[in-house]
């Protein structure tokens, strides 16, 4: 059982769908949306809300600073 629970808010308009965050996520819970943003990119989304621990790895590696991460201690 994780000691933290987190979540990721995606600035979908800023996301370019590079998928670096998908690779960086240690819990493997990020994936690409079926939908496209205004620029035509499939943007990233949190696929499993329950499993996010708010480690912010995705945020660190994001070249476009489009991820905001929150977490609470359980």
């Amino acid at each position: 059982m994780a000691k933290f629970k987190g979540t990721v808010v995606v600035n979908t308009d800023r996301c370019k769908g590079c998928e670096l965050c998908v690779e960086a996520c240690p819990s493997h819970i990020l994936g690409m949306s079926q939908h496209c943003n205004t620029k035509g990119y499939h943007y990233v989304e949190l696929k499993d809300e329950e499993a996010c621990v708010g480690c912010a790895s995705c945020g660190y590696v994001c070249p476009d600073a489009c991820l905001t991460i929150y977490k609470v201690k359980l």
Binding site: K5, G6, T7, C18, G54, P63, D64, A65, Y70, V72
Partner: peptide
């Protein structure tokens, strides 16, 4: 419940403008 200012751990710094960058996806 989690998305609250006090729970923020990472976000875009204000020194970075809101202008979308022209770089290719994934650029260093």
């Amino acid at each position: 419940d989690i998305i609250k200012p006090e729970n923020l751990v990472y976000t875009k710094t204000k020194i970075m403008t809101d202008t979308p960058m022209h770089y290719c996806p994934g650029c260093s």
